[in-house]
Design a protein around this nucleic acid. Structure first.
Length: 297
DNA sequence: AAAATCAGCAACCGCCAACGG
DNA sequence: TCCGTTGGCGGTTGCTGATTT
């Protein structure tokens, strides 16, 4: 007998979220803050399970999420991090503040795998220097083990020094901060009335097609009022606005993931991660993890 | 123009770990 | 210490739009 599913109630709705549900969820979270997911369906009136609410929020509605295609820099970073960490998407996502783990995972499973496979095939056909490329999965468990060792070392060091965690393997603030028993004070969350009315206004204006995407933009408008910039391909990029409810300032502070460079000076390993010139796979394997871990301490 | 196939991505599922009573 | 609950994570599925035949 397996464990019963978290949401086996009959009335729990599944499938794609409707704009109405998004509004309810965003409104509720604006008022009460994220966290305590179990209570959200009951208190907000949503016929969704808590898990679904949390996923919808973290993967789609959370402010500061960048949508659209990945930049070359992001792509390189993902390649490097995947080589280093394996398929630990949440850890990788912590280095890409505007991307969700689900986004990165999807991107990897569609674009990157294909790309790497193509590169490998080309190399095999041409017999180029890329031929010593090794599939990422190869030796992955060793890297993972090494990573775990590093994490343990770091935890020990932190425990001894009583310092706050440093840059690497820092858990996503969005979630861990709520594991504590004290939810963010409601005063932390700016008054949402204006934003919600704005959202509804935008929604009714944009609904003709009843497209969930246009609604999504409206929801993004809500959480990033006045901060979106539309790129040439039509995707919306959320830009923090310090005057409004930005991740850096008030409202959704707990969910923000400040840019790495803002938080910490670049170490050797980070320099490596961000170095676009070292893409191509070999460098990943050339870098000794031991060297990297020494650099951490 | 219609059917078949492919690609992208949102959402679900199941496992695991942390936490609290 | 045990056990139930909750949240987080990674793998996978399935829907939808785009492209090809």
């Amino acid at each position: 007998m397996g464990r019963p599913p978290c949401c086996d109630k009959f009335e729990v709705k599944k499938g794609p979220w409707t704009p109405e549900e998004d509004i309810i969820l965003v409104s509720y979270i604006q008022e009460h803050g994220p966290g305590n997911w179990k209570a959200i369906p009951t208190n907000s009136g949503l016929s969704r399970c808590s898990k679904s609410c949390r996923l919808r929020w973290t993967n789609y509605l959370r402010p500061g999420i960048k949508r659209g295609s990945f930049t070359d820099q992001e792509e390189n970073l993902i390649i490097h991090l995947q080589a280093l960490l394996g398929n630990r998407w949440a850890a990788i996502a912590s280095y890409l503040p505007e991307r969700t783990d689900n986004d990165i995972k999807n991107y990897w499973n569609t674009h990157m795998k294909k790309k790497l496979r193509r590169m490998e095939n080309e190399a095999l056909q041409e017999g180029t220097g890329f031929s010593n490329y090794q599939p990422i999965a190869k030796g992955q468990w060793e890297r993972r083990l090494q990573t775990d060792i590093n994490m343990a070392k770091q935890a020990l060091q932190e425990a001894l020094s009583m310092e706050k965690p440093r840059f690497l393997y820092e858990s996503k603030p969005s979630c861990s901060s709520h594991s504590s028993s004290t939810p963010p004070s409601s005063t932390t969350y700016a008054s949402s009335t204006e934003n919600i009315s704005r959202l509804l206004e935008n929604w009714t204006r944009k609904t003709p097609k009843n497209s969930s995407k246009s609604i999504q933009h409206s929801v993004n408008d809500l959480v990033n009022v006045g901060t979106d910039s539309t790129s040439s391909d039509g995707t919306i990029t959320s830009v923090p606005n310090n005057n409004m409810v930005s991740p850096e300032t008030g409202l959704f502070q707990v969910d923000s993931k400040p840019s790495l460079e803002e938080r910490f000076p670049l170490s050797l390993i980070e320099t490596w991660l961000f170095d676009e010139n070292c893409g191509g796979g070999n460098t990943v394997l050339d870098l000794s993890l031991d060297d990297a871990s020494h650099e951490l301490f």
